[in-house]
Design a binder for these strands. Structure first.
Lengths: 186, 186
DNA sequence: CTCAAAATAGAGTGTATACTCAAATTCCAA
DNA sequence: TTGGAATTTGAGTATACACTCTATTTTGAG
């Protein structure tokens, strides 16, 4: 092994280029040529560091999945408010990574190993939200907590998607409003 | 002109094949070869009927967009309940078309003319939901109605996306629960 | 029945893609 | 300083894509 600094820097540039492209033009637009052009590297150098294009994409996506999680270890019990704020600050604080997360969650969710990874991650998140909801409202059954968790997550995802559609959309404001206020007046 | 019956039937087969593929494998997987194979047709026949591949895709997508609309003409004022039920029956009643709608809305929303079409459609839908909400709750300002409309639509989209992720997900049940009940207990 | 128009087949074009490879260059520990 | 390993190059390969073209077959109105 005994890697050189040059190679390590090149690898970082390639990962950065891949993340930027995934956020800007999505999975399809992120071609090998586009990655190499942006990283200032030739195809041969890319394949000296990565076995395949999907390798670089997966590295970025796994980082994005990890970034959405406030407590990756999962040992600290978190409140619903904490979880929601974590998601909001993820979207607003790391918009590049968030765009990647959303784009891949959707375009890559129905096929391949990437989709399975996304599915498992989604179920873990639902369980996490459901546990927080149950902890804060002991009157709810497990099923009811899970239903509410799914609805909260759906709303957050939907709002994030609107932000993807229109970057001027005030995601954070809407997200807080959605979680704190009832959906319809009574 | 004076079209023959054979050509009309072939055109219908091509549209059907395109819709099926868009729902099954998404926009990327819907290649010309895949369309032609499924429709039982050669490339030359396809291009005798369609100027471009995107033409066939657009036909399907525009049908999907129209299918989600309860009153396409837009003259009849609709209630929020009507709008939500229309969306639910769209997703559950025409799952193929709904899958296409969701996949394209997301994967194709950030680039090309298809994305512009989707964006305009989205804004029209927000306005429609906002009008219904304002009509049913005169205490709300226009801005508040629009905010609620965006949240309702985000929740519906998010739940539909969950159904895309897992076809066993009970979309209709969750959607009604989400719109009728407050998100969090007070 | 006729025949011009419509429809079809199927080989072919050009382009973009992911990926390879041998040779040249750069790095860095000893 | 030096030499083997890491890195980089840049031309090259194979494949898949959307789309074209010409010859042939099929259709159906008059």
């Amino acid at each position: 092994m005994a890697r050189y600094q040059a190679g390590i820097r090149t690898e970082a540039r390639i990962i950065d280029a891949t993340r930027e492209l995934l956020g800007e033009v999505g999975l399809d637009g992120t071609t090998l040529k586009a990655i190499c052009d942006r990283a200032g590297v030739r195809a041969g150098s890319f394949y000296n560091l990565f076995a395949t294009k999907e390798d670089a994409v997966l590295r970025v996506v796994k980082d994005a999945i990890r970034a959405v999680d406030p407590h990756p270890t999962g040992d600290a019990p978190d409140s619903l408010h904490e979880l929601v704020e974590a998601y909001i600050s993820f979207v607003t604080g790391q918009p590049d990574v968030a765009r990647v997360y959303l784009k891949i969650a959707i375009s890559g969710a129905t096929n391949g190993s990437l989709g399975d990874s996304m599915k498992r991650h989604h179920h873990r998140r639902v369980a996490r939200f459901a546990a927080a909801i149950a902890r804060e409202n002991s009157a709810l059954s497990d099923r009811e907590s899970e239903a509410r968790a799914e609805i909260v997550l759906a709303t957050l995802s939907g709002l994030a998607f609107m932000w993807l559609l229109d970057p001027a959309f005030d995601f954070a404001h809407r997200a807080r409003l959605a979680v704190e206020a009832p959906l319809v007046a009574h």
